[in-house]
Amino acid sequence: MPPLFIINQRGSRVQKKGSSLASIAGQVGAAIINASSLETFQEQLAEHMKSDPEHIFIEGGDGTAHIVLTEYFRRLGNRKPARFTIVSGGTTNQIAGVIGTKKIDLTQVQKILSGQAANVHQIPLLEISIDGSPSEYGFLFSSGAIPMATDYFQTRKAEKGGANTSAVYSTILKALGRGTGSGNALIEPSPVKLTVTNPKDEIRIAEDHLGTILTTMPGFIMGIDPFWGKGDAPLRMTYLRGDNKKVVRLVLSAALRRFEKLKKTEGVESWNAEFVRLEYDGPTTLDGEKLAVSKSAIEIRPTRPITFIS
C-alpha cells in the first residue's frame, strides 16, 4: 500500500527550504495531506484512514507531530496503528531529532518502506485526558515554569518579528536568574496535587511546584536526558518543588548534561511511572502546544507501543 505524506506547509523549515516529502511523493505513489488548515486536514485524514494506511510520514515541527498523532489516534479505535516517520520541518524539532530524521530523500524513503531502515523505535505515546475531553497524544508534557517560559519566548519572538532568537533566550535566562518571587511571574510557583503510580507504590504530593516534565522518549536532542527514575515503567517524569530557588543551576545542569548535579539538587525528584494524575490550574504544554486547562484533573498514561522508523 502506498504511504501517506502529511506536510505542514506553514512549518518554518518547510517554508524556508521547501518540503522534502512533496518533491518525492510522486515517485513512491504517496498521497499528500496539507496539515496547515486543521479543519481541512481533519476531513482528509478521516477519508484516508478508511483505507488503513500502513505507513505515515509527518513533515513539520513538534506541534505538527502532536496534532497529527492526536487526530489519528482519536479515530483509530482498536485497529492496528500505522508505522510513522517524523521529518523535521518546524521551529522546534525535538521529536524528529530523537526518533525521526532531520532530512529525507527518495533513497531513505525506499529503505524505510522496504524494511531496510537502520533506526526503529518501539515506544508508547503519552495519552492525556483532561476532565473527560477527547484525549491528546504526544511525547513531551510539561507544567509550570517550562510552559511559562515557552509562552514568554513565543511572545517575545513575535514582538521581534521572529528574528534574534538568541536575544530572546538571553532574556529568559536573565528572568530565571532572578529566582522565584519578587514579581518574577515567569517562574512563580503554582499549587498542584500530584499522584504518581508505579509498580511498587503510589506517591502523593500536594504543594506549590515550579514544574513537571514528562516523556516516553529515550532522551532529548544533544544528549539531554534529565530523568533518573528507577524501573521499567514507561512514563519518565522529573518534578521541581516550589521552594527550589536554584532554577538557573537546574537549567544549566540539564543543558550541560551534568545530571549527577541535577540528581543531588534538593527539591528535584525523578520517577518512572505507569500513571500520573495532576490537579492543577495553570499553564501546561504538550510538544510545545498549549493545553486547555482550568482547575482540571489531568490524567496521563502510556499508549501501546508505536513504531517510528527513520
Rank of each mutant, 00 (worst) to 15 (best):
K295W: 07
E202D: 08
N272A: 12
P305D: 12
E269N: 12
L76C: 10
A35C: 07
M222H: 15
P3D: 02
I146W: 08
L106H: 01
I86S: 01
Y169L: 12
K103R: 11
N34T: 11
E136Q: 10
G11C: 03
G11R: 01
A158F: 07
V98W: 00
S19D: 04
K17A: 14
I205D: 06
A175F: 01
E289A: 14
T307H: 13
R249V: 07
M49S: 02
G100D: 00
I203E: 10
G183W: 03
G29R: 11
E59M: 05
P124W: 00
A292T: 15
F84T: 03
G242M: 03
V192Y: 09
D105N: 12
S36K: 12
K246T: 05
L126G: 02
D232H: 15
I203G: 06
L252S: 09
E54C: 07
L262Q: 07
E47H: 08
D225T: 14
I306L: 12
I128M: 00
E188W: 05
L76K: 11
G97Y: 03
L176E: 00
E59V: 07
M49P: 03
L45C: 06
A297G: 11
A273E: 05
E54T: 15
A96Y: 01
K174I: 12
I32R: 08
D281E: 13
G18V: 12
S294E: 13
L210F: 07
M148F: 07
L76V: 09
M217T: 09
G29H: 10
S253T: 05
I187R: 03
G100M: 00
K200R: 15
L262N: 03
S20G: 06
K17W: 10
A35T: 08
T265I: 14
I56Y: 01
R241K: 14
G181Q: 04
L21H: 02
N184M: 03
T216C: 12
V98Q: 01
K290P: 15
V192Q: 13
G100W: 00
I95P: 04
V14L: 05
G138R: 02
G162F: 05
A185N: 13
K50A: 04
P191D: 08
L45I: 07
S143R: 04
